[in-house]
Design a binder for these strands. Structure first.
Lengths: 352, 352
DNA sequence: CTGAAAGCGCTAACAC
DNA sequence: GTGTTAGCGCTTTCAG
């Protein structure tokens, strides 16, 4: 840095000021400094800068090791966040932590490596959030706890998403619509998407004058098959399914095929909060409500940086809708009575 | 840190030595220091430590924004790497860079934030690798360029994987086996998996006394349909397909169904380098060669850290095999003559 | 607007 | 084994 200063005929401190705009520097001087910098291939030393300024320009992305594992949606949060950080001149570190490993998180924070934390997969009641608040580390969230006053977050608008899905199915003439959730454990653990969607479904369906039918289901094809069979036995007149469980959805499709049912002729399926990547893998491809995942990641980072940099930062709380993408898994409601029964009718070719 | 030293009745430096084991410290002293540290909730300041020691304990994961986008496999590299780094006391930063944005990479490196770099999605000829070598930054790779002498890497053993897939299909009686690659652009860009698998396929099939049939195909279902139709017209006796293109594979399955073919009765499909997550989404689920993705990520990080920490580090070059997981998409070779022709036969229910 | 100098919190000589 | 101290490369007062 001294070299740069010499070459530009200015004081060391002037280079510093020019670099981080802490104090006005004449345009001409700035030019000379810039020039000297690029001639020398100079880049400020990130650690030294961070140590002296007490701002590392590093933020952490906190993601728990999920029992369900990560899907395409979560991946896009990460890439979106990484790109946003990059664009804003920040580095993004990945902190994979146990959901309940709060001491671990505390230790990481105490290292003062990061200026702030972006939390993913937030539970309705989340120890990590409590800790962050208590320590006073700047943070923002993708998702939100049940009480989120005075916290920055972006989240999917599950209510709107559910409403859109149901409205779409009702528009196709469906009246008996069932909801297939994640496993009950996830729900009980306060997994936001699961809880919020379930509640919205109940409410939206009731408001439409229909009867809500819901099932929990493990995140496997096998569980999907079993739950679907049980569901159809209990409610034979169901003609449409809204699912929030992609892996189980595959099982549903298998079970439907095994009964000789064709999707979408005999059963419509709409997948909530599904990325195209997944929705396009099935046969027929799934009509889905696609979350703006990369946007959420990007927004999460931008909220956090705003909080770090803006003097008086306003609270940012955003709910983003999913986009309905109609593919081959939905169609007009069939007459349930005319529908083939298990093994009794030959399957028809998919109309996809 | 001074506080810790006082509380443990030792000198400041002793605490430092105890902390990073640079010099022997008596067991008893170490205990006292540890105690004082936890009583005070002390954690060494990462930036200061890095500045003084010239080792940040931060490594970067370099991943390009892919045209194909990221899949489950790539995601697992990332989580595997993040966990490994965490376990070894390192932080992992994400550097999403343009494939050819070498200056960008250079600037990032000049910041001296990271001790080393882990490169993903390495091309056969890769500017990033050239740069890293030239600058002299420690690095390791998941994947490898065509010339990789004296560079650390882990990669999938594509040759073995192809051999296993072909051997499995031949064992089922298939003799006309086609290979469905990624798009020709990816191949021409030197995308390792695409090039290596294609070469291996040719070689393995020829060695088995069979005739290689290969097709490039865009990464979409539609492209899959089209290429499959063309393929079957040109080679009506093909009974098995080895695919390296999951999205196109879905198109193949659609096209097969549209012709009235059943998988696996009329056509076997084996998906190369596919994660279970994806393979289980289709109907029937795909028999696949599953890469040890998380292991690769982990290994990549461990190789890099070994390089950073070991005094005389030995070159590590590992090829890891994929694991064959048989699912519903493969079966004994049919008699092609008996196979239904387009639209002429009723579909049978999947035997899955 | 500029220049000198005191740290940021730690590591790693060096002398004991 | 322990204690003293000079930096690591930058930011940011402070006096000009």
């Amino acid at each position: 840095m001294l070299e740069v200063a010499k070459r530009a005929n200015v004081a060391l401190s002037t280079v510093s000021y020019a670099l981080n705009g802490t104090r006005p520097v004449s345009e001409e001087t700035r030019q000379r400094i810039w020039q000297a910098m690029s001639e020398l291939g100079y880049q400020p030393h990130a650690l030294a800068r961070g140590l002296a300024s007490r701002r590392s320009h590093i933020i952490a992305l906190l993601f728990p090791a999920l029992p369900r594992g990560f899907g395409a949606t979560e991946l896009e949060f990460v890439t979106g966040a990484a790109e946003a950080a990059q664009n804003r001149g920040y580095h993004l570190v990945l902190w994979p932590t146990e959901m309940h490993g709060v001491t671990e998180l505390q230790q990481l924070i105490r290292q003062s490596l990061v200026d702030g934390v972006l939390v993913m997969e937030v539970r309705l009641s989340d120890e990590r959030i409590d800790l962050l608040q208590q320590i006073g580390v700047p943070f923002s969230m993708i998702g939100r706890p049940s009480i989120a006053t005075d916290m920055d977050f972006v989240d999917i608008d599950f209510e709107q998403t559910t409403r859109d899905a149901v409205a779409y199915l009702v528009g196709l003439g469906h009246r008996q619509i069932a909801f297939l959730n994640h496993a009950e454990e996830a729900y009980n653990a306060g997994y936001g998407p699961s809880v919020r969607t379930a509640a919205s479904f109940e409410q939206v369906i009731t408001a439409a004058g229909l009867t809500p039918i819901s099932r929990f289901c493990g995140d496997t094809a096998l569980a999907g098959q079993e739950v679907f069979e049980e569901l159809i036995q209990a409610h034979p007149d169901v003609t449409a399914l809204a699912t929030m469980n992609e892996r189980a959805t595959v099982g549903v499709m298998q079970a439907a095929a095994a009964r000789g049912w064709t999707i979408p002729d005999d059963l419509s399926v709409v997948s909530l909060v599904s990325s195209p990547r997944v929705a396009e893998m099935t046969l027929p491809p799934l009509t889905a409500l696609t979350p703006p995942s990369a946007d959420l990641g990007r927004l999460g980072v931008e909220m956090l940086i705003a909080q770090l940099e803006e003097v008086d930062h306003q609270l940012v709380q955003q709910l983003r809708p999913c986009r309905l993408v109609v593919r081959g898994s939905t169609g007009p409601a069939p007459d349930p009575a005319s529908r083939a029964h298990q093994g009794s009718a030959p399957p028809r070719a998919s109309s996809d």
